[in-house]
Design a protein around this nucleic acid. Structure first.
Lengths: 202, 202
DNA sequence: GTTAGCATGTAAGGAGTTACATGATTTT
DNA sequence: AAAATCATGTAACTCCTTACATGCTAAC
């Protein structure tokens, strides 16, 4: 096994689930998914594509017009059946490092392709990770045996506030999701490519 | 050159500027500096210490009681003169990747050991980086040619709000710093090993 | 005297980056 | 036809992690 995984695989599979694309185009869309900062480089992307193809998760319709020697052309990749399965697995998985900032962001970006129950689990997982962080930070600030200078204190205060903000945000999202699930009770099972489910938030 | 740099070097130098420490203790304090998550591992820390020592930035008073063979004992490291210079350089430097989340956090954590002017430059650098991000995100949301699903939109909205929050926070800090600088006008020049310089904030 | 926690390291590998090298297509 | 930009790849390197291996010191 050369490439194990990471956010990149997940992001690529997610994007290819929406539409077939070639590497260069993928790299541009990845900026959108991973946030405009943290763009990945070709030196990372192309090896990743090769490996995903080797593993059978994606394919390309080359071999047609494979005429001259050294013919270098656009490879348009698309998901295979195994790739779709793999994507759902990866989206749903609760392994370690699934809840850090980046991994959560990517999973969230593909929410409209994700099962309602899985969405809920992801949001709740993220929330509990943040609660953990919050508890940790609070006790650290209260344990007055360490003399913290005013800058350190200010940094921690600001960090704590940010975490609290995100928790409130998650709470709203979770509530909305639950309403959505409650509204259509008997719809368990497979992933839907369906859109929105948009319960309007006031 | 084996190890180039990274936040770790900076964090170690900063902590050793406060007090001499051995590796194990350093690793515990690093959690505080880098945020309780993102703890670095010994496999990272010890090589880093060796390299900093080899480069002449830190020393240890071993060689005393170097009696038996294979004697393995606590190495207490402290900054050398070169190390102090290096620290000030690194804190002040405006190179690429100086303004990302982690690098900024570490620099901020050592603000009480940092020159007032450098503090200002760091805060302003961070702010302009965030403004850039903000502009980018706004245009991306407004360019309606891309049909964004409600989740992507929600994610971007939340991201934008977070950035705006941090900018406001930075604005307050910068204002406070400027008051401080204005209060003692003629103090330009070399980095100080002096403590705090803490202009009391009301 | 053995478990638990302090303390220091090394080897292998993961997940990426930068810098380079090259080919194809569109624009000017 | 030159320049820009689209498109694909590779080699070497970086910074970090995991897993391992070792030894010292205190508590039970």
């Amino acid at each position: 096994m050369s490439r194990k995984s990471g956010v990149l695989d997940l992001a690529v599979l997610g994007l290819l689930h929406e539409s077939s694309l070639h590497g260069y185009e993928l790299s541009k869309r990845l900026k959108g998914v991973l946030g405009p900062f943290r763009a990945i480089s070709y030196g990372s992307l192309y090896p990743c594509l090769s490996e995903l193809q080797r593993a059978g998760y994606i394919t390309t319709d080359d071999s047609a017009s494979e005429s001259g020697p050294g013919r270098r052309k656009k490879h348009v990749y698309k998901l295979t059946a195994e790739g779709k399965e793999r994507l759902q697995e990866q989206l749903a998985e609760g392994g370690p490092s699934t809840w850090d900032d980046e991994a959560f962001g990517v999973r969230f970006a593909f929410f409209s392709q994700t099962d309602a129950e899985v969405r809920l689990r992801i949001l709740e997982g993220r929330r509990s990770r943040l609660e953990e962080r919050k508890a940790n930070a609070s006790t650290e600030m209260t344990s007055t045996r360490e003399k913290l200078d005013r800058y350190t204190l200010e940094l921690q205060r600001h960090g704590l506030e940010s975490v609290e903000r995100e928790v409130r945000w998650l709470n709203e999202l979770i509530a909305t999701e639950r309403d959505g699930v409650a509204a259509r009770p008997h719809r368990a099972g497979r992933a839907a490519k369906s859109s929105a489910a948009a319960t309007k938030t006031p």
